Amino acid sequence: MRTKQANLLVALAAFMLFSFSCFCISRMRQTSSQLINCRNHVLEFKESLMRLKNSSENNRKDLLQALSHMQRGPTLGEDMSGAAGLRCLRHVHASNFILKIVPERSSAAGEGDPLRDDGPAAADRFEDMKTFLPHLRRLGRLYPNVVLGKGRRGVSFALGVPTVSRGNHSYLAHTLTYLLARMTPAEARDALLIVAVADNNEDYLHSVVTMIKKKFRWHVQTGGIEVITVPAFFYPELILSGDTATQLKRLYMKQVLDFCILMLYAQPKATYYLQLEDDIIAKRMFFKEMANYVHNIAPDNWFFIEFTELGFIGKLFRSADLPSLVHFFLMFYQDKPIDMLLGYLLLVKMCESMETFADCRQRQREVLIRYKPSLFQHVGTYSSFPGREQLLKVRLGK
């Protein structure tokens, strides 16, 4: 009897040992599988970084080649005579308030003209766009039409506000009121607010100009507000026709180009450039907080400062950096929205060859500064993109 019980205990122990061994083997296989998956993810991530590095190097070479070609190529305006010139001039005439073709040697920017302060150098800034937008090469020297403006420059901050028609809904007057009412007279004298009408609807342009002249007369008379128009034929056929791109993608591409021309126009007028939109409100004393942070608190090595988390709104740049930013945006305007392009530019700018991703991210955090609480907030729900609603909100500082 005892022998039978002993055999039973031995068998039970052997079964338990076998079960435990099977369980351990199963767990080891699972762990091994997880380790293999982790290793594969690491290898994929490494390959992605290498592809990104190679793409960045190729893009850098393309940009250097393009700039070299631009420097060797003719910088003067092309001949506007003949049939091609007549077709171009008819196009200009059909799109009033869109673009100035600055003569090579003339007094087009004479006394009282807002272009007088910039002269030929102003048009030269826009000549670079012909490298990335070949359809503009048939034109002479380009410069946006200044509908309202006194040629103010030498201020600390230029505030760029692009606007398009939203049908029966407009937030532009509300936005300008918030921005200007929350500046002191001294702050207003040290700033320039630039409204860029990026819509070929002349009725909308007329309504914007009339509204600004009526509601903000003092700022117009003192040169604190300027209104420019983005040229209708500045956009390539890819955006105008819509044959090869969806409507949303065409709107994103158009927005990149609108921001680029606004940045180039604002670049020589101020030390810093603040990107805004036409449907925002501003925190009380936003200008004082922004100026104090830039001049007294922010480190010297910042690339740009975010004064709100929403997309491209509230991004502050040094005006000296704007041309290089515009070049990068123009290279990839067909690929991504402008806020994503800015993120990619930061990645390219910060990551060095044979560097770990962690080190790259650390250096990004050192130069990417986000001011809290936000100084700007979206208003309304009607997006500048037709058929879409704007529901993103952030907490606005008191």
Rank of each mutant, 00 (worst) to 15 (best):
V10Q: 04
M50I: 06
Q221W: 01
R137A: 05
D279H: 10
E202K: 09
V161I: 11
W302E: 04
G77P: 01
A11E: 07
K53G: 01
A291F: 08
S56E: 05
K283F: 05
S21T: 12
F357A: 13
Q334I: 03
L346R: 15
I212F: 12
A121I: 14
L49Q: 13
P299M: 06
S170K: 01
Q65R: 10
M263L: 11
Y333W: 13
I225K: 10
F15L: 02
E127R: 13
P299T: 06
K393E: 04
M1W: 11
T229E: 09
R138I: 09
A282D: 09
F329A: 08
M28N: 14
Q334F: 08
L375Q: 05
M50F: 06
F328C: 00
A109T: 06
T308Q: 02
V164M: 08
A83D: 13
D278N: 03
V42R: 07
V147D: 14
M28I: 13
L368S: 12
E352Y: 05
P185N: 04
D190E: 07
R29Q: 12
K4D: 01
F216M: 07
Q377A: 05
E289T: 06
I212C: 10
H295D: 07
V10E: 06
K53I: 00
L325M: 09
V42L: 13
D190T: 04
L136I: 10
L330T: 03
I281E: 12
A266W: 10
G343Q: 15
A266I: 09
K249D: 07
F303N: 01
L17V: 11
A123P: 05
I313C: 04
Y143R: 03
Q34Y: 12
A84L: 15
M354P: 00
